[in-house]
């Protein structure tokens, strides 16, 4: 079996938002929609203050609450763990959005463009009417993964088969790979470092791990 997950090394992330920009570029998301985000968290009070940059987005949970609540079965989970949305089935009720503890889902009611009401040339070419009025979120760049795997490439190792945010990361803080392969990059990172998953107590089994210190 294959279980694709993402690993974010919090020690390395510098909050540059290159992953955010790469995601927007790769997926042509409209203004206000960020499938990949990086939180800038300040923790503590002066003089004991810490700062952490925390990449967030869809966690592609093992037990996704968004899929459980979806009345139309538009949200599904593939055998490799990637949670998808069928835009042709979704009714845009946004139940998935309130069920997601990671605020990873977006619904845009009307077309939005970067510079006013008219799209730029690029936006006009890449605008997808099917994404209006429905729920959208990070797909782990599933098309790239599928295309890469068809070519015999390894997601997480070969850039052509790896999510855009991971490819773009300037600090090598983001990693992607198969958790079920003990020799994969992500399995080794998790073995060598202490890690946690966000809101693990909610029982969603997020497929997004955060490294915070050496093992």
């Amino acid at each position: 079996m294959t279980r694709y997950v993402m690993v974010a090394d919090l020690r390395r992330c510098v909050g540059c938002q290159t992953c955010t920009a790469a995601c927007k570029h790769a997926n042509a998301t409209p203004p206000g929609v960020q499938w990949r985000r990086v939180l800038d968290m300040e923790i503590g009070e002066y003089p004991d203050v810490r700062r952490a940059f925390v990449p967030v987005g869809c966690m592609h949970c093992a037990d996704p609450p968004c899929m459980e609540v979806c009345p139309s079965t538009a949200t599904r989970q593939r055998d490799d763990g990637i949670v998808t949305i069928d835009y042709d089935l979704c009714i845009g009720c946004a139940y998935c959005a309130v069920a997601c503890p990671y605020q990873a889902r977006y619904k845009v009611e009307t077309p939005r463009f970067a510079y006013g009401e008219a799209p730029t040339e690029s936006e006009a070419q890449r605008h997808e009417a099917g994404r209006i009025g429905v729920s959208t979120k990070c797909t782990f760049c599933v098309d790239r993964i599928d295309s890469g795997v068809e070519q015999g490439l390894t997601p997480g190792e070969d850039p052509e088969a790896t999510p855009a945010c991971v490819n773009s990361c300037i600090a090598k803080a983001l990693h992607f790979g198969d958790l079920d392969d003990p020799d994969s990059n992500v399995s080794q990172l998790l073995a060598e470092n202490q890690h946690f998953r966000m809101h693990e107590e909610l029982g969603t089994g997020p497929g997004f791990y955060y490294l915070w210190d050496r093992a």
Binding site: V69, C70, I91, G92, I132
Partner: peptide, 20 residues
Amino acid sequence: EIGRPWRFLNVYFNPRTSWM
């Protein structure tokens, strides 16, 4: 409120897990 009101019949597709 729903974004695609003319697909409202799709609400009946998931009695297995969805309370909606």
